[in-house]
Design a protein around this nucleic acid. Structure first.
Length: 431
DNA sequence: TCTGGGGTCCTAGGACCC
DNA sequence: TCTGGGGTCCTAGGACCC
């Protein structure tokens, strides 16, 4: 019965801030000539669109559209493409988050381009506070944002949706903290725009004659829980002005970690897959050490393309448990290679490979298995030394023999942008 | 020819135990 | 002809997010 909702804390005010066309805006900061032009950022391997400017949207470009369909727009309408540049986004994201946090008493990062802010108890007009956040982030980082302010996360996000829908009229800030005004928005907004309602749930809801956020808010929570699960029930409660999703202070270390990649071309031999697995292994062990975790369980997978014909399609995976959890690249790689050899089959066009650490434990304070083999001597010192060299000299400065020399793993990257934040040679020049 | 990567939470179902 | 029931743990898969 209980969906762990609580009645609204009196005076609770939650805001949601996100960057407009995040990746495109971040490229524009360092390449101002892109401002006002139709621009798309592509996924790794230049596969599909992950971010597009308003101008590109007006040309009809869709999120997730495959890049090869864009050629005509590039030739005839001047559409500009950029390959993704994750170090750049990390750097910009940190600056945006810092700028937001300087405006509010409490902030929680939600994703690379979104943050929650708690405005409860702040004095003054809420819409005005939203505009101040927006102006401050723009001034300090050059990134435009939208702000939605309401009573809980779900309603704040819906307000932010409205701020984009009526960008000009609202100046991309919408604050609705009275229920009556919010209900008008509920009846206008499609159910698919509610946070937590994706494509599949939209279909299910539609079959139940629920197509607007307002209809969803009036659905029977017990019925919803029975048919669509407890998460959607919580969403219904939140639309009804209750609070089910906590503000979410700083999250702990990640429980699962993954490193996966599609290859730029198909792979048909075990050796090439081993090279890729060694690359992922080194990357994951670095991630583990950075967050102070050890891997206690791991899974390796190899897949053919999802677009391959049925009989040419294979998804293979195998997992293992570490009796003594580890973040030592040598041990981890050995285990991963053994798993890979167990699942590899000749005669298929492998398109993607990866490793998922399915279970982690804290470096300090986990209980040792008395039958576990002893740790390799000086493991921690060796890993620390490697990490220090690679931090100073750049990723891949020192690596194990089986790791690939080319850290791109043959991925396509045809439309690079200046490495303005990571390379002295390409730093931006202000005249 | 060419269609991302990295997370989260929840649930169903099988294995196993007593 | 009869053929338990309930708990826990694990895994796979579904659904979501950005």
């Amino acid at each position: 019965m209980d969906a762990s909702q609580t009645d609204l804390t009196p005076g609770e005010i939650i805001g949601h801030v996100d960057c407009h066309s995040a990746y495109v805006s971040m490229h524009r900061v360092f390449e101002p000539k892109l401002i006002g032009k139709p621009v798309c950022v592509l996924s790794s391997n230049d596969g599909a669109v992950v971010s597009r400017s308003d101008e590109a949207k007006r040309l009809g470009v869709k999120i997730s559209q495959p890049a090869f369909e864009l050629r005509d727009l590039v030739d005839r309408h001047g559409l500009i493409l950029r390959s993704s540049n994750f170090p750049l986004y990390d750097c910009c994201s940190n600056r945006v988050m810092k700028a937001i946090s300087e405006c509010v008493p409490e902030m929680a990062v939600h994703s690379v381009d979104e943050a929650w802010v708690r405005l409860s108890g702040m004095r003054g007009n809420l819409e005005e506070i939203g505009r101040q956040i927006q102006a401050s982030v723009l001034k300090k980082t050059g990134i435009p944002t939208g702000v939605g302010i309401s009573r809980n996360k779900t309603t704040a996000k819906l307000c932010n949706w409205a701020s984009k829908k009526w960008k000009v009229k609202t100046g991309s800030v919408v604050a609705l903290i009275e229920r009556e005004r919010f209900e008008k928005l509920l009846d206008y907004a499609p159910a698919s725009e509610v946070w937590g309602i994706g494509a599949r749930l939209t279909e299910h809801l539609s079959a139940l004659n629920i197509t607007t956020a307002g209809q969803l808010s009036r659905a029977d929570p017990t019925f919803i829980r029975k048919h669509l699960g407890v998460t959607v029930e919580r969403t219904v409660h939140e639309l009804n002005w209750r609070q089910c999703f906590g503000f979410g202070e700083a999250p702990g270390p990640r429980k699962t970690l993954a490193s996966t990649r599609s290859f730029g071309r198909r792979i048909r031999d075990l050796h090439s897959l081993e090279v890729a697995i060694c690359f992922h292994s080194a990357k994951l062990c670095l991630k583990l050490r950075k967050q102070g975790s050890l891997a206690s369980a791991v899974r390796v997978f190899i897949n053919t393309s999802v677009f391959a014909t049925i009989d040419a399609r294979q998804n293979k995976s195998a997992g293992a448990v570490f009796i003594r959890p580890t973040s030592d690249t040598r041990e981890f790689t050995e285990a991963a290679i053994l798993l890979l050899r167990g699942i590899y089959r000749d005669g298929f066009d492998w398109a993607k490979a990866g490793i998922i650490v399915t279970e982690t434990v804290s470096e300090t304070g986990y209980i040792r298995d008395i039958f576990a083999p002893p740790e390799r001597p000086k493991s921690a010192q060796l890993m620390k030394t490697i990490d220090t060299i690679n931090r100073l000299g750049g990723p891949g400065t020192v690596r194990f023999g089986r790791e690939p020399a080319n850290r791109q793993l043959g991925v396509k990257h045809e439309f690079p942008s200046p490495k303005a934040t990571t390379s002295w040679g390409e730093i931006i020049n202000v005249k």
